[in-house]
Each structure stands twice: as C-alpha cells, then as structure tokens.
Design a protein around this nucleic acid. Structure first.
Lengths: 311, 311
DNA sequence: CACACTTACGATATTCGTAAGGATT
DNA sequence: AATCCTTACGAATATCGTAAGTGTG
C-alpha cells in the first residue's frame, strides 16, 4: 500500500483535535477533502482508525496501535526532511578543498572568510599542497574540488579556468632591473636567481619560459617566503606568478610584470567529471569563481562545472 | 511537502539497483513513470538525489544523506503496517471479556477453544463474575464486552440477545417430582429447596417466578456446584437455568423443564455503545453469536453490535 | 435548528503508459 | 547499433472545493 506523509499528518491532527473541521483547517483542506483523506488512510490499512459520529471522534483499538507509531514515524520523517533542507539551504554541510599553497595563503583566505560569513554552519576543510597532490585528492574523492595549476587533460576531471596567473620579476628596489617598467626573459640572464623546487608548479611553469636561457641559479628553496627573504637581502632575483606577489610586499622589494607572449600559469578549478558537487561545495565553487582574481581572460573552457549544474 | 512511501520505495530500489529500468520493474511501473516518481521526490526535497547519465546512476552527496534515513524510515513504516495488518487479519490481538460464572464454566469453553484454534495469535482474557460486575467491567472499559443477564436498559451500552435461558427443576431421581415430565412452579411448594445467594442472577430471575409462592428454603449457597452436591445427597431440590444443567449430569439426579409462561433468563452480549469493538473482539463476538446455545427465540434487539459494524 | 460528519458532483491536477528523442558506448 | 534515461502527450485516475444530505442533541 501507499502511505503518504499527508495521511500521517491528517491522522495526527485528527487525533489531537478529535474534530474533523479543525483538523481540516490545520491541514489546509476543506472538511470533506480531509474526511476523504482519513478514509483513504483507513482503506489503505484495511480498518477504521477512528470511531466517529456527529458528537464524538475517538480512536478505535487499531487506531490506538497506529497512533503511537504514526507520531514517531512523522517526527522521524520531519527530522530527516529538516536535516536535508538544512543542507539544501546551506545551513549545514561540509566542503573539503585542496589548493596550491600560494592560493591557500594569498587569495583563498578572502574567499573562505566571505564564505564562512555567508554560511556559518558549513564546515570547511582546506588541504594546501602541490598541484599534482591536489589533483590526486580530487580523483580519490578526498576533496570536493581543488584549485590547481593543471589537470585539464584528464577525462575523469572537469576543469574550469579561474584566472591566468602572469609572471612577475621580484628584486630589490636598488637592483638594476628595478628601473625598467616591463621586462623580457632574456634580461634576467646573468643576474643571480633564486629558484623554487622543481616539484612546485611555479618552477614547472618557469621552465617553459626560462629553459632555453642559461640562468645564473644561486639557490633552490621550497617556500616562497624563503624566496622573499633571499630577494629582500639581495641574494638574488626571482620570477613568481602574480597571485603570490602578496609575499613580496615590502619597501625594499619591487615587482615588475614579465613580458612573456602567451605563457601564463593558469589556475584551474578541478573536480570529478562523474559526479556533481554537493550543494555546499557548489556554493563555495561559485563564490570562488565570482571572486576570481583579475587575472585577465578566462580563455577556453573544457566542461564548466557551473554550466553542467544547470542541467 | 508530501513524502509518500511509494517515493521512498522507489528511492531505495534505485539506490539498490542503480538502474532506472530494473528499479521501475521492481516498483511495477513503466520506466518513464518511475523516472517521474524519482523526479517528484527530488523536486519535493529540493535537490537532486542521484547523479545519472545513460551509463551510470549514483547518489549525490545529499542523496547519500537521505539514503540512510530513507531505509530506516521505510523499514519502520513497513513494520508498523505489518503489525497493524496482523491485527486486522487477526494474527495478533487481545480480547478481554467478562461472563457469568455459569456461562464461563459451561458454554464459553467451547467458544474459546474454537476461537483459539482459529486465531492462535490472539490473547484471551476472561473474567468470570456476577452479572452486575460484568456490566461494570464493560462500562469501565476493562473488558471489550460481556456475557451477562442484564444491562439492556442503559443508554451507554449496546446489547444483543444471545439466548433465552429457561429454568429447569433439578432433584434426585427418586424424588416424587422426578416422575413428572413437565412441572409448574406451584408444584415446588413445600419441597425442601436449595437457593443460590441473592446476588446471583439465577436467584434474581427466580424471584420473579417464585416470589409469590411460599417456598420451603432449607439452604442458601454461593456456587452451583454446591447446589448440585446438596441436591444429589437429597438435601433439597432446586431450579436453575438450562445453561447450568451441565453441573447436574449425574445418574442420581434428574432435570425437568419448568413450565413458566414467558419468564426466562435472557443472556445478553453487552458492549459499550460509544465505541466499536477491536477486530479481534469483534471476531470473538461474532463467533459467540454463531455458536449461541439453542435457547429459543432471539426476541427483540436493541442495538445489534453486528449490524452497527456494517456501517 | 444548529452543529458536525458524509455523500454528490463537476473542475482541476496528477499519474500512467506508449512512443519518440537524445546521449553514450 | 544497442542501451538507457528523458521528454511528449493523450488517457485514466485522484483530489479538490462547493453544495446538498444525514443524523444527533
């Protein structure tokens, strides 16, 4: 048989009021329609649940059995629906993301802060790690999506370009290159250079630009903060993406756009192609896109997660 | 919102099979109708519960939340409906009745035995007590109905005549009255007489017959078995209703119909007028009527419980 | 005769199955 | 080409509210 929550609600209302007219109002139904609803329930279970005449409405023996159970059932149902609605309306939930360390430290805090203010009930989890690890987290389902610098050539993954992160020279303000407004890669030759480790996405993108050139490498470090320390002290110069420039805000250090034709580090939102994002994750995803850094053109997309969700 | 058990069943079926076509069969629906049912559920809760394309069907994050709850809810619902159905189909239940001691010992055992054989899952409870106490038990709701010898003048109660219980003389076979086939009340005069206590319904009905006569009372006892003992030993004679004659089956004792115009002890089924009987109680009620002793005419009814239940 | 539940009935909504459509392998 | 979900659509069914009916105090 079919048992609907409307029937349960009608039953409970009638059991509380013991009056068809008032119970009908409570259910936003005309009294005859309510009467029919109770009758349909009784037909469904195969027995009268209420004894009724014009003067009195009361449970039958079988109605009494049903009453306890029905109230529990209805409370359960309401609880479940309420919990689900809380998720749908973003009062509850959990989003796990992975992000490149530079994004995690520089741009994401703004996004996360705004997100937390909008949806204080949603738990956030951030894994700051290198791009390849970020993508592995997505593929393994450990995170809902990732901010990475690649992954757009894997059919398992859906990607969307967040921004094009262009490269900048960083050096001391008294360095000869600091006088130039715009700088070309070959001008970096012979100046002592501080590199990031080869596993970092910054370094990997730099190779595409600087590989043909004979660099004067003096040091290779793991963290951008260390690069900053070295540059500030005049150990060397370096080249970093725009989104990491917040590390280099200091009076002794200047930054200059690097004039490179077409080669940029593209920041991507990477998620699994085979499953939709949770409501909470989608909200963070959309907010991140809405607050994308002003890194120029979004260029060509593969599968837009936002577009897909419209379907 | 409205949430039906059909939607829950569809959800669970789809989650188990992960295939619309097979889940639709399982729900006895065409596949498009099943699809619409899932969609109506998703519309109701306000979010997609399954990610699906032509190749794969799997839960969304929100669907996963719903799945655990839905299975519990459905199991609960099935359990409740099954329990109720067990009662409706008389596999479970409980009936409490009150009955006059004479009926409880003589006729009811047959009815109860047959009832237990038909409905072994239904618990029975029998209170053997005097007629007025039986009726009080009905009014107090302590029993479902009673077999009594009165109560047909109370508007709270619905009564139905089971049988007319006619009076018989009991005496030793060597008693002078034993030779007669039929006996009139005045012939009892002067023979030593063993009475039941004044609170018994047998005695109360006898008063109506014998009050004008000067009886030769030698003894007043509480129980019919004691009356039997006294009669068998020749202490006296007595007059008892037909339904109690099983007490007097002995080679030394004879029973003779008493010729009384119109005065009988009517045995009534007494129940509350304001509420229906439980399915189980109704079954016993109906069986009792079907197996009524052959005590002549059912005479005039007030409210027939059987008739009322048709409504 | 006033109150409260039921029945009657026409209008509106839902739900169904068949058939066609679209996407994926 | 085969599989599988969705859309389209006319038919059957269910549900609604208004209005009339019934029974009780």
């Amino acid at each position: 048989m079919n048992l609907s929550s409307r029937q349960l609600r009608a039953f409970v209302a009638l059991n509380e009021t013991r009056n068809f007219t008032r119970a009908a109002e409570q259910c936003h139904l005309s009294q005859p329609a309510f009467s029919a609803l109770i009758r349909s329930l009784e037909d469904g279970v195969g027995t009268r649940l209420f004894d009724r005449d014009t003067r009195k409405v009361q449970l039958t023996t079988e109605g009494g059995l049903f009453a306890e159970a029905a109230e529990r059932l209805l409370a359960d149902m309401d609880h479940i629906l309420e919990d689900l609605t809380d998720h749908v309306e973003r009062r509850k939930g959990r989003v796990a993301v992975a992000a490149l360390p530079s994004l995690a430290a520089g741009w994401l805090p703004d996004v996360f802060a705004e997100f937390r203010a909008m949806y204080p009930g949603i738990e956030l989890s951030l894994h700051d790690m290198l791009s390849d690890q970020c993508i592995d987290m997505v593929r393994a389902g450990k995170v809902d999506f990732a901010f990475a610098a690649g992954g757009d050539n894997n059919p398992e993954l859906a990607t969307e370009v967040v921004c094009a992160d262009e490269f900048h020279l960083v050096c001391r303000k008294d360095h000869p290159l600091a006088r130039l407004k715009r700088i070309e890669p070959r001008q970096l030759l012979n100046h002592p250079f501080v590199h990031m480790g080869r596993s970092s996405s910054v370094r990997q993108h730099l190779e595409a630009i600087l590989h043909p050139l004979q660099m004067n490498s003096v040091l290779e470090v793991e963290h951008l903060a260390t690069v900053m320390g070295m540059v500030k002290r005049g150990v060397g110069i370096s080249v970093v993406p725009a989104l990491t420039l917040f590390h280099f805000q200091h009076e002794d250090v200047v930054t200059r756009p690097l004039h490179v034709s077409g080669i940029t580090r593209r920041i991507l939102l990477v998620s699994r192609a085979d499953r939709s994002l949770s409501v909470a994750a989608q909200a963070l995803y959309d907010l991140a896109l809405a607050r994308r850094p002003d890194g120029k053109l979004p260029t060509a997309k593969r599968k837009s997660r936002s577009a897909r969700l419209q379907g």
